[in-house]
Write a protein that binds this DNA or RNA. Structure first.
Length: 284
DNA sequence: CTGTTCTCCTGTAAGC
DNA sequence: TGCTTACAGGAGAACA
């Protein structure tokens, strides 16, 4: 599942391959991938003749800047891009194809069809609600402790779903949220407002470190798909709790446990991440 | 406004 | 062996 580090890896890979490429034609095989006011023919028509100038990223959204438009792309669970010669046969689950003037295609594949694309006027991504509500990028220069702590202190729900909201900080998904909470020694079910200032500070630092290291590693590759961009990371070898159910905790040796929090598989060490009695949330 | 549940999708694995 | 069910989860919609 692409989270911020994986999306950043895709961004770099795509930009290196297709910067300055010009779109000749667009084909859509699953209409629901495209949302917003420019869908179907209007989406295709707008992009014909457009040259890709740069690719930016905001949270887990890719922002492809053309001459007059910005294509906002979210990979959600399993979306991926590949750049291949136009004459190469389409793989299963190919939903959108951007034919380029140089004889190649940018192809969007997505087994689950959860990913979305939206075309807005150049640089107008802030008009999209999903981007407007994003918190700061998880970097030390913009993700500041004081506002994080202040917001967290007003959140009654569990800290894990709070961090997955993308509003406190953007970029965490199910893998890195478990890793950051483990590194900070905080139980995923602790209510946001139950964290002490010191705990919030440690969590803040853990989020910056975990995502920073994952970006350096090129993200986490759990299933490898040859030729797809962003599937070559190696952070999977640095995972301390995600997918480590039953394995000994690197800190205390007790087995890593798996449970469900807010409908999501959640990995943690019951010894290192304590949920004290008074912090127990009502059964959902 | 806050918090929770449902929905979208298909491949894979577990269960009977 | 073959059919059914559970599970994987990001984000937006729907709802209390």
């Amino acid at each position: 599942m692409p989270e911020l580090p994986e999306v950043e890896t895709v961004r770099k890979g795509l930009e290196n391959l297709v910067e300055k490429a010009v779109i000749q034609e667009v084909e859509i095989f699953w209409e629901r991938i495209i949302t917003g006011s420019r869908v179907g023919e209007s989406f295709k028509k707008a992009l014909v003749g457009e040259q890709l100038q740069q690719i930016r990223r905001r949270g887990k959204f890719l922002l492809l800047d053309f001459d007059r438009y910005t294509l906002i792309s979210h990979l959600r669970m399993e979306g991926k891009y590949e750049v291949v010669p136009t004459d190469e046969p389409l793989k299963l689950h190919t939903h959108v194809v951007f034919h380029l003037k140089d004889g190649r295609d940018i192809r969007y594949l997505d087994v689950r069809k959860f990913g979305r694309m939206e075309l807005v006027l150049l640089g107008q991504e802030e008009t999209v609600a999903g981007i407007q509500r994003l918190g700061p990028e998880p970097f030390a220069d913009v993700f500041l402790l004081e506002p994080f702590q202040a917001k967290l202190s007003r959140i009654k729900k569990a800290v894990k779903p709070a961090l997955l909201d993308q509003n406190l900080v953007t970029g965490l998904g199910n893998i890195y949220v478990d890793e950051a909470l483990f590194q900070a020694g905080i139980h995923p079910l602790r209510p946001g407002n139950s964290l002490t200032f010191n705990e919030a500070a440690v969590l803040h630092q853990s989020i910056i470190e975990v995502l920073g290291k994952a970006i350096q590693a090129g993200g986490t590759t759990i299933r490898t798909y040859l030729n797809a961009l962003g599937e070559s990371g190696n952070f999977q070898q640095d995972l301390k709790v995600y997918g480590q159910t039953g394995e000994p905790c690197i800190r205390c040796g007790n087995p890593i446990q798996k449970t469900k929090v807010a409908q999501r598989g959640t990995h943690f060490c019951a010894h290192c991440q304590k949920l004290t009695e008074e912090n127990v949330l009502p059964v959902m």
